[in-house]
Design a binder for these strands. Structure first.
Lengths: 186, 186
DNA sequence: GAGGACATGTTGGCATTGTCAACATTCTAT
DNA sequence: ATAGAATGTTGACAATGCCAACATGTCCTC
């Protein structure tokens, strides 16, 4: 654990910490393992002892992100419509707080990784889906299409906001109406 | 225009053509101006006579994409609800046909470019927004929040589909219900 | 404790890429 | 024809991902 010992002691978590910072300040494309290694005061290839390659490192960052997201979704209280809108808000808050991380977490090449992400990613989705299912009339049970529709809407809102896609001023989304929109009667 | 002349003759459009192909086959991150130049049978720095830098090249690709999208949205006929759902379908079809291009068109760093995209990008959005406005009760007029909500939903659906985010089988979205969902009465 | 397996870190190197500067060739307009 | 603008080429530099070979430290076993 010494500062100047041959072994760093915490390199893996230190790289992840620096990676989070670099990711949010300059975006994924600009993130390089070499420069992170330098920041950590370690040689250029040291990171490869902890991550198979750059993609695996990004996968680990994304995995962390999903874990945090799960915690924040879990923390939302309430039941029924209130819970759904609280989750929508929490989801948006997370994305606005960590926009590059949010993009990374939902990027194709990262979610393709077999070893990382999938479980936490799936869990965070299931939390949303279940909150929506609670809201569904019981006769319908768990409506996968309604869950996907709701998620699509939130995902779209989030991206349009964090990517600055919308060319006009926007008010706060109508979170309270969220559960009223989905699911709709067939 | 000769094959082996010093001047290529069509380098700009040839690079764009090759760029579209490379973009869809390997994704944006793997696209390199050097390799495109080589494919075009031209030296590694020739592209810089036509595009300021890599980002500007991607911007030109995105611009083309928006132009095509506008054409395809324009082509959708109908009025009222039918037009809205037709546009939703056309939008999705475009994205599914050119997923990497769609991602590029909606990426932050590209839309930041001052010279490209903005006008066509804005136009394609306005087309969607106006179709939705047509559908809005006239007393409401052009409801920017409703337009954004509808766009968010479609954008989310598209990304979830092209990025393969959804961990379950999905049915076709309920396009016919689209205009019934947004706008909703305040 | 001695010694060896294993984890972790380092050096040097290679290929790819973006981009610049300096130079070459061709086209266009006068 | 000739000057100047377009367009293309060569050579170079720095940054990066990643590999191989080697160094150093940790830890477990005897």
């Amino acid at each position: 654990m010494k500062e100047d010992s041959y072994h760093h002691g915490n390199l893996r978590s230190e790289l992840l910490r620096l990676g989070r910072i670099a990711l949010e300040s300059d975006g994924e494309a600009a993130l390089s393992l070499r420069s992170l290694a330098e920041s950590a005061g370690v040689s250029k290839t040291a990171p490869y002892r902890h991550f198979r390659d750059r993609r695996a490192f990004l996968g680990a960052l994304a995995d962390e992100g999903f874990r945090i997201l799960c915690v924040e979704l879990e923390r939302t209280g309430g039941r029924g419509p209130a819970r759904v809108s609280a989750m929508g808000k929490a989801y948006m808050s997370f994305a606005v707080a960590h926009p590059s991380l949010y993009r990374l977490m939902n990027s194709q090449s990262i979610l393709e990784l077999p070893e990382t992400s999938t479980s936490w990613a799936r869990k965070s989705f299931m939390m949303l889906a279940e909150a929506i299912a609670d809201e569904t009339p019981l006769s319908h049970g768990f409506d996968i299409n309604a869950a996907c529709a709701a998620w699509s809407y939130i995902h779209g809102l989030v991206l349009i906001r964090i990517d600055g896609l919308f060319p006009f001023e926007l008010g706060e989304p109508d979170w309270d109406g969220l559960s009223a929109i989905f699911p709709r009667p067939a």
